[in-house]
Nucleic acid binder design. Structure first.
Lengths: 180, 180
DNA sequence: TTCCTCATGTAATTCGTTACATGATTGC
DNA sequence: GCAATCATGTAACGAATTACATGAGGAA
């Protein structure tokens, strides 16, 4: 178990949806789950290799003609994946560079702090806009996804929306307070 | 610049408040900023050493009698720290193990998903309770902190409260939706 | 023919956590 | 005398990012 980590399960999870290549996995991360997960090639390929060595995934050779390496999850892999799913999610120690800066900002000018919060607010409003687009897309293509599928795409998205909204309202509260 | 990272600035930030030891820095992290930042000894001590080598901090020998190593930020260190403060906070790629699991949970029973969300809700309600206590403490000891100080402690705390509340309401929304 | 996307991988480095190791001091 | 806290550090490991390296195929 040379490389054992979160990536491991992210990969198994994607392969549990459907067999695909390392490249596809990266795309899935960037397109579908980007707002709460990220992966990079430098990690995907080595983990893919070690998962195969452990027998949790296997090569699928449809047409061996090309250089693509398509993988599928094995029974053993599915078992390990489901076990992981059922475990409670690990507590993740928070690390917000923004809050760290803010909490240390006593020596900055009021105006600098204002603009710091303002730009943070804008970032989150932009996020909100993106999420809105995604949500609209899911709504419009209701027929594409069945009700179950929709929940698993929609739920994390709602999470993003609600969180971003709460950040925006926090920003407003702080911008107000800072002028007093 | 052997060890250059966030820890670097977290340490400079704490030392910019007041000179202290590595041990004190750890305590500050655990007590004051734990809800949005964490550090561990294994990282603090080496970084402390390299910051000293770079001349950003220096030893303070009050009474050399004891084994304590008290550090203070230097002018050079303060300069670098303020420069960092003024830069916009780096975008941090999100990684939520909980959302990753949820989005991959299509093969779990509805009841399992319910309890997954429920326990997540409880975690955040507990957080909320802790934040409430801290907030009350600050309110009660208003005289201890001047208005400026209060803002920099209170603002991140409010952030935590607002965020946790939004998570709780998301959980309720999802628990409701899952039964439909 | 040039650029973009597809596609796979390695190496170097940095970053962060955990375990290990040690010992003084303080309060009960 | 014992436990808890104070106090400092190293080593090993594991995780994650970035840079590097390569090349095919298709579109403009």
């Amino acid at each position: 178990m040379s490389v054992k980590n979160k990536t491991r399960y992210a990969i198994l999870g994607v392969l549990n949806v459907s067999p695909c290549t390392g490249y596809d996995i990266k795309k899935y991360c960037d397109k579908i789950i980007a707002h709460f997960w990220n992966e990079n090639y430098g990690h995907i390929y080595p983990v893919l290799k070690s998962l195969q060595e452990e027998g949790l995934i296997e090569r699928v050779e449809e047409e061996i003609q090309d250089r693509k390496k398509k993988y599928a999850i094995t029974t053993k892999g599915r078992e390990e994946f489901l076990n992981w799913l059922k475990e409670p999610a690990n507590y993740q120690p928070a690390r917000s560079e923004f809050l760290l800066k803010l909490s240390f900002s006593k020596d900055l000018k009021r105006e600098e702090i204002r603009s710091m919060i303002l730009s943070y607010k804008e970032d989150h409003m932009k996020k909100l806009k993106d999420y809105g687009k995604m949500e609209a897309y899911i709504e419009q293509n209701q027929t594409t996804f069945d009700k179950d599928q929709r929940f698993f795409i929609h739920a994390p998205l709602r999470y993003g929306i609600i969180s971003a909204k709460s950040v925006v309202s926090w920003c407003d509260e702080m911008l107000n307070e800072i002028d007093l």
